[in-house]
Nucleic acid binder design. Sequence first.
DNA 1: CTCCTGATTTAGGTATACCTAAATCATACA
DNA 2: TGTATGATTTAGGTATACCTAAATCAGGAG
Lengths: 218, 218
Amino acid sequence: MITPSREDYLETLFHLESEGVASTTQAIADHLQISAASVSENIKKMAIERFVVHSPYKGVKLTAKGRAVAIDVVRRHRLSERFLVDKLGIKWEEAHREAHRLEHGLSRAVEVRMFELLGNPETCPHGNPVPTLSGKIRDDHSHPLASLNVHDRARIVKITDEEPKQLRYLASIGLMPKTQIRVERKAPFGGAVIVRVGETAYALGNDIARSIWVRKTG
Amino acid sequence: MITPSREDYLETLFHLESEGVASTTQAIADHLQISAASVSENIKKMAIERFVVHSPYKGVKLTAKGRAVAIDVVRRHRLSERFLVDKLGIKWEEAHREAHRLEHGLSRAVEVRMFELLGNPETCPHGNPVPTLSGKIRDDHSHPLASLNVHDRARIVKITDEEPKQLRYLASIGLMPKTQIRVERKAPFGGAVIVRVGETAYALGNDIARSIWVRKTG
DNA sequence: CTCCTGATTTAGGTATACCTAAATCATACA
DNA sequence: TGTATGATTTAGGTATACCTAAATCAGGAG
């Protein structure tokens, strides 16, 4: 049985793998806000059920079976976010948390109709691609903000941070998907980036910059 | 903590009390499709937490605290049904089941915005009143179909049956809220009722008639 | 008024999903 | 090449939420 808890684990693994982060017990525990011991136990069971491959003391990887379920959950999550923001006017920075409550309750039939109602959206409100019904994820050809050079112009593609606090800040300075930016200055060694949005320049720390993905326009 | 399971119990108790049915262990077990033993245990715990009053071997009653939560769940349920039918085009007879999956995931904020999106609906698609945010339930002044006399004309107010099978049948003959009907004949002792809908007369068994509530129009 | 029957509860058991504390492992550095 | 340190797993425990089988209760028929 795929319980809401299982869905959360699979979703977490998908996120970590997408970000290129190793899916360690601790990383999963941090993301789910539970103890590493609980994660260890649960991962062991999910390995028996072939959702993941687990090399004890090494790491966890989604199997094709696990990835299929994970992508299904991610699709429901991102559609829920779209619905909450576009149809209900829920705040951009709250959409993630609210969608997390909603996503487990969407049947396939409801999810399919919701996709139509929303006009077959390609992304969530933060710019992350909505997987297709068949589980494909479009490449958005985006690159980390830090990969830009000074004076490059770019358009924001997506923001992968999920914390309301950070998202609220980014929204307040207009840094959202589709926003045009220009790199004014860069600190060395992957430090802060100074970015111009409209008429104003903002310094973005390493942490927040890592969650901003862009496509060069200039 | 009010878990989805707890919400289901409270919702069930609300339904049984609304229908004037005694909330026996067995009635609850039948409604939730679980064993009477499980219900007995769980009711004991819910009594300790003051959601219900339990007289062992006698019966269960919602407390004010339990009723408040129950009404909250019912509100979310009926709004979900409205949303599913009006916005997503989910079939009338499937709305109940789907709403049951969805209702547990709606936060207060989402529920409030959904209510607005739906145009402040007064009823669910089956005609049951949507409780107000403050927990009030409008009296719909409806009466059981069986209370009508031969040749009475009436308008359907609500249908309290939740089974897709029965609902599909009723929808197929046009028997839904707002439908005008006329009682053609009545079998004695609360037996079948023969009802005219449009040009056609249909015999409705006792079971199904009990779930149809009407307001006299003639 | 007793007994039978069906409803209810209790006893004992399972699975999930969490926890803390203790044991174990991997590896980086000294 | 040890060794200590931090990550991971195991051990042991709790709470929820279900189950079947057995015991107990209540109320109607005789």
